[in-house]
Design a protein around this nucleic acid. Sequence first.
DNA 1: GTGGTTGCAAACTATTTGCATCGTC
DNA 2: GACGATGCAAATAGTTTGCAACCAC
Lengths: 174, 174
Amino acid sequence: MLEDRVERIRQILQAHNYKMTPQREATVRVLLEHEDRHLSAEEIFLLLKERVPDIGLATVYRTLELLSDLEIVYKVNFGDGVTRYDFRKEGMARHHHHLQCIRCGKVEEIHENLLADVEKLVEERYGFKVLDHRLTFLGICRECQEREEREKAAKEGAGSGTSEAASSRERGER
Amino acid sequence: MLEDRVERIRQILQAHNYKMTPQREATVRVLLEHEDRHLSAEEIFLLLKERVPDIGLATVYRTLELLSDLEIVYKVNFGDGVTRYDFRKEGMARHHHHLQCIRCGKVEEIHENLLADVEKLVEERYGFKVLDHRLTFLGICRECQEREEREKAAKEGAGSGTSEAASSRERGER
DNA sequence: GTGGTTGCAAACTATTTGCATCGTC
DNA sequence: GACGATGCAAATAGTTTGCAACCAC
């Protein structure tokens, strides 16, 4: 099964006059084996190092760019400054979406085809041929909602009122 | 009207113990005056230079980060390596979405509330409090569809068959 | 007056590119 | 054997940070 998919990609590469090198094959395998993970180039690079120890980071970027151009992988951007790469299921849109918590930054993935009707509408109304979509909901995850509820309750007792200021930003992510 | 909105933001800043400096006010005004534009930090910086000539780029980034934390602006990412900033309408989700062409890179904006029902479903099913969403359709815009149609027709005559290879990637964007 | 804010320059991070070398088809 | 692919190092691009001077409240 996995072999079939690797083989399929080899064919796509060859059909476009690209070579299937060990580095590219290893990259494809890493991607396939972590299909559910949204890996960054750096993470892929580290995983690859274990199998192809002297692969260069530039090669990883070049391979990912190539796979992206061939529409074999997606680039995904969670706004944390890193591009992540997702394997793309043959021909069809992904039908998976992200729930990103604006408090803790966690990204959860959900698998539902929420947008079939919406895509159709966009095609009809705007003459835009939809191949895929990226949908991210921004909000507050259940855990953070509960935590904030607790914190609010705790504050009811001791709150002075002044100076809740500029310190709440200090736990800046990125 | 514009003054009201600036004033409102001054209040939000003060309520969080931040000061409304000339630089911040100018930044807010630039954002308000280009509400429909998805400006990058660099673009905002250049626009600001005209009014506050010795403003520093770092200040622009810091201001935008602050406005983002206060949920006054959004960060938007089109995957071209630049973060863009959108003004956020008071309290409510934006209800505007993007059509991004994977050929020419152009981003068109559409204004429709496509997702009210979908948000409700996500809240119920995943306990995730949705504050906003980002929806980008990836596909091929009308112009590129037509251009490709033309190119394909032209090729019907002279096509050798071999070597359509690696050159189609050369017009790499970013 | 004081603590947040600024501008500048330097630092960082992610990604890209030039080039000599290498390896697949 | 040729031409695409690789690794390395250097270059870029976007963004962040340290710090002394500054200024809004």
